[in-house]
Write a protein that binds this DNA or RNA. Structure first.
Lengths: 168, 168
DNA sequence: CGGTACTTTCAGAAATTTGTGAAGTTAAGA
DNA sequence: TCTTAACTTCACAAATTTCTGAAAGTACCG
């Protein structure tokens, strides 16, 4: 219980941190994310360094190394975290780069592209001249529109952030 | 096999329709939606009238009335479909209004608001002056930015659609 | 080349989610 | 008011997902 404050990374009240982690993760789950990736991601977001090792994550979240491994693999695939090899150690470190995960969140590129392609097939096979075909075509047009708009929006965000937070 | 074409709503090749429904639903599931709501929604999208009864949905998707009921309740809560009482019948009809469901899809309003509020708590409890607190504050700023941008984007979509499809 | 410090994979137990049948509820029409 | 078509709710069985411990794989370091 008795520990001197360290200059580099003395985490604050673990209760408060844990409350945030679980609360935020719950909201992510509600939005469709799997539980463990959500918890890991929230834990990283709420760490001072923005990067934690597998062991640290396991301890904070009270889960096995296997669970951490699975969650991190998922997050890395989604480009929401990146892995770093800690030099001079065989330990790995998982990091949130804010610029990187904003993009990941809004991109969903891959998903939207698959929606678009399913819709395109639908238009063809139901017939572009039928009521149903027209509805699908309009939906497709909507996603195409959104695609472009989101790219432009992210450009504006980068500028906005630069101005407000002074980095990019 | 022998059927005269009806003027009002003769659905085309059920194979093709079903293929679209299952394929598109699968993509929605991938994005985090529950299976049955996804299938019901896809079925409505691919119908000529844009509206089907519970019995029609059950037959097309080969599921029980209970399953349809649950799925439809979910979709209605999300404002992705609306219920209509068929006049002169105790039958109900579920409809996709494209304008309504575009809004529902992009709004996610409620979800983003909850994320924002979880982040706000996090900033407070971790301390706005800590590295973690600053990260959360920036994330919060991002969502606030996105909120506004999406509203503007939808306004532009309405105009775009009006021009291209001539309705609103 | 070991030895070892981590990480990943995998089979299976536990928890959760999903869909069904059947009973319950509601309201249209006689 | 009664009958009955239609929707909803509920308890449970089945399917799926999730997480764990243990075994296997990797690659630093001597």
């Amino acid at each position: 219980m008795r520990e001197a404050a360290e200059p580099t990374e003395r985490e604050r009240d673990p209760r408060a941190v844990s409350k945030f982690v679980e609360g935020f993760a719950a909201q992510l789950v509600e939005a469709g994310m799997q539980r463990m990736p959500a918890r890991v991601f929230a834990a990283l977001l709420s760490s001072d360094s923005g990067a934690l090792t597998s062991a640290e994550l396991g301890e904070r979240l009270q889960v096995s190394p296997a669970a951490v491994s699975g969650a991190v693999r998922y997050l890395a695939q989604q480009h929401m975290v990146s892995r770093e090899r800690e030099p001079g150690s065989r330990r790995e470190r998982y990091r949130v780069h804010s610029d990187q995960w904003y993009e990941a969140l809004t991109n969903r590129e891959a998903i939207i592209k698959r929606w678009e392609s399913a819709l395109r097939e639908g238009v063809t096979s139901l017939g572009a001249d039928t009521p149903a075909g027209r509805r699908l075509a309009e939906t497709l047009a909507f996603f195409e529109f959104v695609d472009e708009e989101i790219a432009a929006m992210m450009e504006r965000w980068r500028i906005h952030r630069e101005k407000r937070f002074g980095h990019g």
